[in-house]
Design a protein around this nucleic acid. Structure first.
Lengths: 181, 181
DNA sequence: CCAAGTATAGACAAACTTGTCTATAACTGT
DNA sequence: ACAGTTATAGACAAGTTTGTCTATACTTGG
């Protein structure tokens, strides 16, 4: 992987996540990175191509973070605790790997691209699948409904943290799941 | 309220919800509605002004729909059932009043406007507050945690319906809450 | 040390954005 | 019926957007 290419992805991801994809132009990414336009179009065929690379980068970062969070959990209870405490840390900008919280990049990106069959929307869906799979792998298989419950509470907590500015949900989600187990 | 003004709001809301605010220009709203540009700028000082009017319109539509859904519910259980069955109908385009489902207009709009202090982001937050208040008014006050649970599950169900294309969540949410009561 | 690949600055094209303005026409209430 | 409001079409300004291209220079492997 070329160094310039990686720089472009990093800065694009940062700006896209911070302000939204449609609010950030190619020219801004170039001026911030100090890279020439021709170089960008040597590495990426279009803005969409760069967006997909940024989504992939974010997906990698997120999966690595999640893996770390869930690594030491040995019981279902620990998985739940680690996951939602992790979300709490993310929301309050304590999770350095994920950058300043501005909601879920994939939810936000889906909101900007209305065609559900576009590569971009499809990638967002695949990311959510990957996260779900990762969590499910850490759970005992004895409770098939638990994974659905965890996922729907997770999406709700992220949305409420971003839109409502309510950061209290992760803790409440832990209590909800405790009652169910 | 002027007729032209209302036409502009209706068509703006339709296009904004369908494709996202940043993907729809003033000129498209004008050509679809057949209204002159000067007329638009007689009624609204800027695009942002029109966006706020569209948000208000959507908020009204949504509140009316929700009120109707919850009207006949007499127990907490009925409130939960009506709400999540209502969401299910929305997701599968059976709720005509809400138009073709493309996620929550307020979540989507928050995703596009990154400044949390902008009027637009603030309005989105207020909408969520209103919805929460309306639901809470229909619940017996004996269970203060129930409202949080309902709201976080509702946001999760909407997000998963839109991003993941998973329409099964409302039913699962009802089952989750049943277990908690 | 030189050839091939990679990067540079930035002009340019063509299309789009929001918003202003002019000059004309069509309603509407008294 | 006429005065005052409201709407019209569309030119225009000033700025943005993505993407192409040219001509020059730097870097690196063999």
């Amino acid at each position: 992987m070329s160094k310039k290419r990686q720089q472009l992805i990093d800065i694009a991801l940062q700006l896209f996540y911070e302000r939204g994809i449609n609010s950030v132009g190619i020219n801004e990414i170039l001026s911030v990175s100090g890279i020439a336009k021709k170089t960008l179009y040597n590495h990426f065929t279009s803005k969409e191509d760069l967006v997909l690379a940024a989504l992939e980068q974010r997906n990698n970062n997120f999966i690595i973070w999640l893996d770390l969070i869930l690594k030491e959990a040995n019981t279902d209870n620990e998985v739940v605790n680690n996951l939602f405490n992790g979300l709490s840390a993310w929301f309050s900008n304590t999770a350095v790997e994920l950058g300043d919280f501005r909601g879920c990049f994939f939810i936000n990106t889906s909101a900007e691209f209305s065609d559900p069959n576009s590569k971009i929307s499809q990638y967002c869906r695949e990311h959510k699948q990957q996260v779900r799979y990762l969590i499910s792998q850490r759970l005992s298989q004895s409770n098939p409904e638990l994974i659905d419950t965890i996922c729907v509470l997770k999406e709700g907590a992220i949305t409420m943290a971003y839109v409502n500015h309510d950061l209290s949900m992760p803790l409440k989600c832990i209590k909800i799941i405790e009652k169910l187990l």
